[in-house]
Amino acid sequence: MFKITPMTATVIKNLFTRKSTRPYPHVVREPFELARGELYIDINDCIFCSICERKCPSQCISVDKKKGLWTCDPFACVYCGICMGVCPTRCLHHKKTWRPVATEREMISMQGTPPKAKKKSSAGKEPEGM
C-alpha cells in the first residue's frame, strides 16, 4: 500500500512555505559577524614592513617600501586571514562581505606614506600603479 513517508510530508510542506533560495543579488543574506570577506588595508597605519608579503600562502600581496605602495591581487587572495594575524600594526582587515562580481581583473593598490622621512616627497611624485 502507498504510505506517506516523512519526506513526502516535507516535500508537500515545501510547496506552501517560503523558498529556501533567495534572488541574489537583489536579496542578500546578513553576513556573519566573523566571516572573512574582502581584504582591505588602513594604509595610514601601514609601516611597509612587508611581513604580509612574505607570510601570504598565495603570495598575492606585494609591498614596495620605497614608493609606499601596497598591492594585492584579489583574484589570487584565498581569504585565509594569515596576513591579518601577522600584521604588526593590525592595519589589515577583512570585510564581512565578499567582493562584488567584476568583469575586469583589477588590482587593489594603495598609496601610503613610506616610513622614512627622506622619501616623503615621493608620494606625490610617483604615479600610482593601477
Binding site: M7, V11, F32, E33, L34, A35, R36, V78, Y79, G81
Partner: peptide, 29 residues
Amino acid sequence: EALFYQLWKIRERVMDINEATAGNRVIIS
C-alpha cells in the same frame, strides 16, 4: 532530484556553521 534538493538544503546549515565560526564556508583554514 527531490532528495538531492532536500539534502543540499540541510547541508546549507552546516555551511553556515562553518562560515559563522571559522570565517569561510568550505576551505575554513
